[in-house]
Design a protein around this nucleic acid. Structure first.
Length: 688
DNA sequence: GGTTAGAGTATCTTC
DNA sequence: TACTCTAACC
């Protein structure tokens, strides 16, 4: 049934090496996912129980893709028994089962990014030496500490806090206060999923033994992105049976800033002795021209596992380099070129525009819109970061878990119902005295809070409405939909936005977002029923937190035929026939914050390598000689990485003397572009 | 208690 | 150039 002959010899070796540790070094586009899924199918063919296999990834996107492909290969029934998911979901499951041994509450909840920042904000208010610190930077530092399995004291001793302008003691204090907030809210954060799981397995051998008995074969995808905690976890769960297969590519390690260690591949080899090394070097994605460029560039990094990609492609196109006078011209050129690609028979969805930073997207969006080219952006500010979405979800959370403090504080005066800071302080003081959660405090003892009659009435009305909704049953997706509709109606969420948002466009968008939420929530609920056979609202909330942005993208992605705009980071794992890589300038790419160190530059170079290898056929490289507006206008130099590409494969100039094209040249170029465009449009031929 | 204006700030981004 | 937080004002 499984056609192993369709694999190349190295892929086949990867698939057939099942017992013992193995390390598959898989270059870009070498059929990695195929190897992973075939390997799982092959294990089942050899009689291994699906329940004994655990496959871990880092992103939901990767997990979902793996699950889909495995399902196609081995059927729904067996596929559903295999534990496929992210590291975090795997650990969360274990903590839900055994967490009480660590003293976790039975019904703890998972803090999302905004909850984490909210709690950290509350934490630093308690300590005067922490006023004015950059919340996000502090949060990132604490997160990195947790990923490295460091306690507050250990954190204080490391040099990580130097960039925060804080001494070690203050850092430790912040970390501790933040932990206290988590505990107060009965929450754990993403990093705790891993950290606490490691602690659990280290301290409770019987739990570890149970898991060793349950899962005997482990697979890890994108292994180069593993951080300290995840590596330790893998060691704890997998070292007894020693059946671990990890797949990765050191050249695509682009997440060191979130704790991934470049040496992680070597660490694996020492951790799991005698690992079989398998190298996949035949590429099934790119032209040889693109591979030549990519190989040549990445060679400039030292300390990498030596490998060299090749492919059997027949159609070769030179890379195209386009210098532009400024960023507007760059965006316009890209838009025009997209138009002519589409005119020549390409489809919009075959095109991707990649950039280093999200803020580069705006001008390109503008230029595409002007030409009427459909496009889609990925990443950037996520759906779940939007205020109206967070507010709505806070209502749902408070209904499901009345002791959710963060949700209470978020919506107690949203929409405005005349409960101000003074009232909130009184409620908080009462909560501290009694130990109750604010909702309970307000429900049971609102009369004793000492509020003004206006605030008290508002509070009582709010509590009353919420209690009414709480009484509704939530056992089916339809009831979830009704609940959502009811929340919007009773609390006037739509009318609040209608009255208080001035800008018509953003007002309409917000209302549309809000109205789509109940239906969307109910769809999530029915997905869950399909997978688990039942609906548990607590689980639903967990999933919302873990899944975060991926759900919102799910809907229209398949049918849309649009140009994709995304950062290079977001493009990892994807491929497109036509790729534009823009903003190739010193200080932007490589980014100015990375230029100072060799590690910085080598990571940027890996990022560049990832970008190049996204393209299957044609690759367009652009840069601007001037960027910014007004006082911020600066002249720019082409990126050093351009010079690392062999000049003979570039159809365009690549020399030190790259001046902006003269005005006449620009005009001539634009005219000819339009001519191409028209020629192209008249002969639109649908592909295949 | 709510609103508004002005200052400050700005990688990539996962779960 | 755009968004968020804070402080002064109504």
């Amino acid at each position: 049934m499984l056609d192993l002959d369709s694999l190349n010899p190295e892929q086949r070796r990867g698939v057939e090496t099942i017992v013992g540790p193995s390390l598959i070094l898989a270059g870009a586009g070498t059929g990695k996912t195929r190897v992973i899924t075939f390997r799982i199918a092959h294990m089942l063919d050899r009689g291994i129980a699906p329940e004994a296999i655990a496959a871990m990834t880092f992103t939901n996107k990767a997990a979902r893709e793996m699950a889909d492909r495995v399902r196609e290969l081995v059927g729904k029934e067996r596929a559903s028994k295999i534990r496929i998911g992210t590291f975090h979901s795997f650990c969360l499951l274990i903590l839900r089962e055994f967490g009480t041994r660590l003293g976790l509450p039975k019904k703890f909840s998972l803090a999302g990014t905004s909850d984490q920042l909210d709690m950290l904000g509350r934490a630093i208010k308690e300590e005067s030496s922490l006023t004015g610190v950059n919340l996000e930077a502090l949060h990132a530092a604490i997160s990195r500490a947790k990923n490295a399995l460091l306690t507050p004291n250990e954190f204080a001793q490391r040099s990580m806090h130097l960039m925060l302008n804080l001494d070690g003691d203050s850092c430790a204090k912040a970390y501790e206060l933040y932990e206290r907030q988590l505990k107060l809210n009965r929450m754990i954060d993403f990093d705790d999923c891993i950290f606490k799981c490691v602690t659990l397995l280290e301290n409770f051998p019987e739990v570890r033994a149970q898991l060793e008995n349950r899962y005997r074969y482990y697979m890890v995808d994108e292994f180069q992105d593993t951080n300290e905690g995840q590596l330790r976890l893998l060691e704890l769960v997998a070292s007894k049976h020693n059946n671990v297969c990890v797949v990765g590519d050191d050249d695509q390690s682009i997440y060191s800033w979130r704790g991934a260690m470049f040496e992680t591949l070597e660490r694996f080899e020492t951790m799991f002795k005698g690992a079989v090394l398998i190298k996949l070097e035949q590429n099934y994605r790119c032209t040889n021209t693109i591979l030549k460029a990519a190989n040549q560039v990445i060679k400039n990094n030292s300390k990498r596992k030596d490998k060299s990609l090749w492919s059997e492609s027949v159609h070769e196109f030179p890379l195209y380099l386009e210098p532009n006078a400024n960023e507007e011209d760059e965006a316009k050129w890209i838009a025009l070129k997209c138009m002519s690609l589409i005119g020549e028979g390409g489809q919009a969805k075959e095109i991707a525009v990649l950039y280093r930073a999200n803020n580069q997207a705006r001008l390109i969006e503008l230029a595409l819109r002007e030409l009427g080219i459909p496009y889609e952006t990925f990443g950037g500010s996520s759906f779940f970061e939007r205020k109206e979405v967070k507010d709505f979800l806070a209502y749902i959370r408070l209904i499901v878990r009345p002791d959710d403090r963060l949700a209470f504080w978020r919506i107690i005066n949203t929409p405005h119902r005349g409960i101000g800071i003074k009232s909130l302080e009184k409620i908080e003081a009462a909560c501290q005295a009694s130990g109750h959660s604010p909702f309970l405090q307000a429900k049971k003892l609102s009369a004793e809070l000492g509020l003004t009659s206006k605030s008290l009435n508002a509070l009582n009305e709010f509590i009353g409405e919420l209690s009414t909704i709480q009484a509704l049953e939530i056992d089916t997706p339809e009831q979830v939909q009704q609940l959502g509709d009811e929340v919007i109606r009773r609390f006037g969420l739509v009318s609040d936005i209608r009255e208080h948002t001035k800008d018509a466009a953003s007002r309409d968008r917000k209302i549309e977002n809000l109205k789509s939420l109940p239906g969307w929530l109910s769809r999530c609920a029915s997905d869950m029923i399909n997978e688990q056979g039942k609906l548990d609202v607590h689980d639903l909330l967990d999933r919302l937190t873990l899944n975060d942005r991926d759900i919102s993208e799910k809907d229209d992605k398949f049918k849309s035929n649009r140009v994709s705009l995304m950062t290079i980071h977001a493009s990892k794992g994807l491929e497109f026939p036509f790729v534009f890589l823009c903003g190739l300038e010193e200080e932007l790419f490589p980014h100015k914050n990375s230029i100072g160190s060799i590690q910085g530059i080598t990571e940027e170079r890996r990022l560049f390598y990832v970008a190049l290898t996204r393209a299957k056929l044609k690759l367009f490289l652009t840069y601007a000689l001037e960027r910014g507006t007004g006082a911020y206008k600066t002249s720019r130099l082409p990126s050093r990485f351009i010079k690392e590409i062999p000049p003979e494969i570039i159809n365009g100039e690549v020399s030190e003397r790259n001046f902006a094209p003269s005005k006449e040249e620009k005009v001539a170029k634009t005219i000819s572009s339009f001519a191409n465009l028209r020629a192209g449009l008249s002969g639109v031929v649908p592909r295949k």
